[in-house]
C-alpha cells in the first residue's frame, strides 16, 4: 500500500484530458440528439392532437351538410309530388273539357245532319207529291194555277 506522487500527477493529467474529451466530443452530440428527439416527439404529439381535432371538425361539418342535403331532398320530393298531382289534375280537367267539346260538336253535327236530311226529305216529298199529283190530275190541273196550293202542301209535309 503506497501512494505515489508522480502517479497522482499523471493520473490527474489523464483525468483532465478525459474530461476535456467527454465535454467536447461525447456530451454535446448525444444531448443534442436527445433534445432533437424530444422536440420531434413533442411535435408529433401536437400534430396528432391537431389531426384529431380536424377530424372531429370535419365529421361535425359533414353531419351538418348531410342534414341540409336530407331536408333539401325532402323538399324536392314534396315539390315533385305536388307538381305531379297538379299536372294530373290539369290533365283531367283538360280531358273533361275536350270530351265535353267533342260531345257538343258531335251533337251539333248530328243536329245539322238531321236538319239537312229533313230539308232534303221535304224537298223530295214535295217533288214526289207534285209528280204524283201531276200523274193523277194529268189534264185538269194547271201547274201554274195550282202552284201555290202545291207549295203549301209541300211546306206542310
Amino acid at each position: 500500500m503506497q501512494a505515489s506522487i508522480p502517479s497522482i500527477v499523471g493520473q490527474m493529467i489523464v483525468f483532465g484530458a478525459f474530461i476535456w474529451f467527454t465535454m467536447k466530443f461525447v456530451w454535446p452530440p448525444i444531448t443534442k440528439a436527445m433534445e432533437e428527439r424530444r422536440q420531434k416527439i413533442a411535435d408529433g404529439l401536437a400534430a396528432a392532437e391537431k389531426g384529431a381535432r380536424a377530424l372531429q371538425d370535419a365529421s361535425a361539418k359533414s353531419e351538418e351538410e348531410l342534414k341540409v342535403a336530407r331536408t333539401q331532398a325532402q323538399d324536392i320530393l314534396a315539390n315533385a309530388n305536388k307538381q305531379a298531382a297538379q299536372i294530373v289534375e290539369q290533365a283531367k280537367v283538360t280531358a273533361q273539357e275536350e270530351g265535353a267539346r267533342i260531345v257538343a260538336k258531335a251533337h251539333e253535327d248530328v243536329e245539322r245532319e238531321v236538319a239537312h236530311a229533313r230539308e232534303e226529305l221535304r224537298k223530295r216529298v214535295g217533288e214526289l207529291a207534285v209528280v204524283g199529283a201531276a200523274k193523277i190530275l194529268k189534264r185538269e190541273i194547271d201547274t201554274k194555277a195550282h202552284a201555290d196550293v202545291l207549295n203549301d202542301l209541300a211546306a206542310r209535309v
Binding site: A3, S4, P6, S7, V14
Partner: peptide
Amino acid sequence: KDEAFISTTAWHIDTLVVSL
C-alpha cells in the same frame, strides 16, 4: 523500488496502464 508510504519517485505503471 521505493518503500516510502508516500513515494515521490515510483510510478505505479499498472494503475496508469489499466486506468488508461
